[in-house]
């Protein structure tokens, strides 16, 4: 409860700070629009040459890309401001300030800063999803939308966990910054994971779980999802949180016994 109040306060304050710079907002909107627009054109071109991409039709691929864009916005807004160049903060001893505060350190560390302008991208993603739905011409039952939202939440959790895990590596290997690698891996979520050959598909499902981040939620919206897969996703999200907690606790032990 306290964490929710804290989150809201941080978000509101950061938003206020962001809104003070009008030109930045305009810039962010234009940049996100142009990036999303040209990506959509790419998807269109691909489908002008083929009917199916890894078994997905055009409108399905558009919905997938919209989902990917939404999650990119969430990543940019809530996670990246905390973990970008995390190794530098470790080296500079800036973890100390998090440890002396009477609130969960993992929360303060990984969700304590927000960049609300990133939500512009999430909104654009939502519009793209809506457009994909209208392209299909089908009526989508409400429950599918609800399942999609649920899986989107799971995907956001997995995004947070994986990104923070990648940052925490620098607690064990000082100076190792995999920010760029995560960025690169993230891009594979633009397309359905069924498009990739093995063993890439396996890696993208279980090691860098972009399948759970974009493919599964988008599939749930376009064709529905079996209760088993829904359950598996929820379990995966839960396990991911547990893993992050364990890793953080052990990283914290290391930090508190080793810094100078």
């Amino acid at each position: 409860m306290k964490l929710l109040r804290l989150s809201c306060a941080i978000f509101a304050m950061s938003l206020k700070a962001d809104l003070a710079h009008r030109s930045n907002i305009l810039f962010q909107v234009l940049l996100s629009l142009a990036a999303a627009g040209s990506s959509l054109i790419t998807v269109q071109i691909i489908f002008s040459r083929t009917d199916h991409l890894g078994g997905w039709t055009l409108h399905e691929a558009v919905i997938l890309f919209g989902t990917f864009t939404i999650l990119g916005g969430i990543l940019l807004t809530f996670v990246e401001p905390n973990v970008l160049w995390f190794h530098q903060r470790v080296i500079a001893g800036q973890l100390d300030e998090v440890l002396v505060k009477p609130a969960p350190s993992l929360f303060l560390l990984s969700l304590g800063r927000h960049a609300p302008l990133g939500l512009v991208q999430a909104v654009i993603g939502a519009v793209i999803v809506a457009w994909g739905i209208s392209l299909s011409g089908d009526a989508f039952p409400v429950w599918r939308g609800l399942v999609w939202l649920t899986l989107l939440a799971v995907a956001a959790v997995i995004t947070w966990v994986t990104r923070v895990l990648v940052a925490l590596i620098s607690l064990w290997v000082p100076g190792l910054a995999l920010d760029v690698v995560y960025d690169g891996a993230w891009q594979f979520g633009r397309y359905p994971v069924t498009m990739y050959r093995q063993p890439a598909r396996f890696v993208l499902t279980w090691v860098l779980p972009v399948a759970f981040i974009t493919t599964v939620p988008a599939r749930a919206l376009t064709r529905g999802v079996s209760p088993q897969l829904l359950g598996a996703s929820l379990a995966f999200g839960f396990v991911a949180i547990m893993i992050l907690r364990l890793v953080w606790m052990s990283g914290l032990r290391r930090y508190t016994s080793a810094t100078s």
């Binding site: 691909i46 040459r49 083929t50 991409l53 690169g184 891996a185 891009q187 594979f188 397309y191 990739y196």
Partner: peptide, 15 residues
């Protein structure tokens, strides 16, 4: 390396 690999993956799946 990511973007060329991604492009290759897409197009070898599409065509």
């Amino acid at each position: 390396c990511v973007t060329p690999v991604l492009g290759f993956a897409v197009w070898s799946a599409a065509l």
